[in-house]
Design a protein around this nucleic acid. Structure first.
Lengths: 117, 117
DNA sequence: TGTACATATGAACATATAGTAATATAAAAG
DNA sequence: CTTTTATATTACTATATGTTCATATGTACA
């Protein structure tokens, strides 16, 4: 019953996370968190190919993360919601702590190889 | 300058998001947020195959999201940090709002064709 | 020891994904 | 109208990913 619904919700959210699971898309989002930018501006700031940036933007627009505005010949992209970047930062904080915890304990993978014989 | 470093950070974080970008992994994390569980318990709660659950758990352990404890014949998995699930919930909230915004406005793709006078 | 149970791992497959070059569209400038 | 600039799209390739079955490992216990 609600298990089915839960599955559907998590499938949706997994897609959302998948949208965030590319370094170039994160860099684009980070740029857009400073304010709207045209494709060209993004290309110059990030050093990526035009078709590459366009594709990432198209995906993110399709999934509602960014919105567009035409201004003359350019198309300006912006974050659909500032909280997108804020949420990413929160996630990054948690992730950083995980990594630190791992490194300080380091009884993580090493336990394994040390035990091997 | 620190552009190189920024890239590295976002590449790392992209991998972290990628770990969250699978519905079954999210379901597992959701289960573990209630407390530790053995592989078998997860299988029964989620209705997934044993090898499938094991593989997802192995990936998440490798990436520091979950930790393990052996108890008799079972291996108990738990979240390495409760905040993992909290951060996911925050992300889900933002995502839900995005979807709602999209549905209510629905001037989403249409802006394009409407704007071109 | 041998058997049952819990979990991990490997091989194989199908599908998804990111990147790129080439081309198409669309607006602005001349 | 033609050219130029900005962006989108397509076709293609290489690689990554999730799932499954079969098998291996490891632990408990008769």
């Amino acid at each position: 019953m609600e298990n089915y619904e839960k599955n559907a919700i998590y499938r949706l959210h997994a897609e959302f996370c998948q949208t965030l699971s590319d370094a170039n898309r994160l860099l684009i989002i980070s740029e857009l968190s400073k304010g709207e930018a045209s494709v060209n501006e993004l290309i110059n700031h990030l050093g990526l190919r035009q078709s590459n940036v366009s594709k990432h933007l198209a995906l993110m627009r399709e999934r509602g993360l960014v919105s567009t505005r035409r201004g003359g010949a350019c198309i300006y992209y912006s974050l659909a919601d500032k909280r997108i970047f804020e949420a990413i930062r929160i996630l990054m904080d948690v992730h950083r702590d995980l990594i630190e915890k791992r490194h300080s304990l380091s009884n993580d993978i090493h336990v394994f190889s040390a035990d091997k014989r």
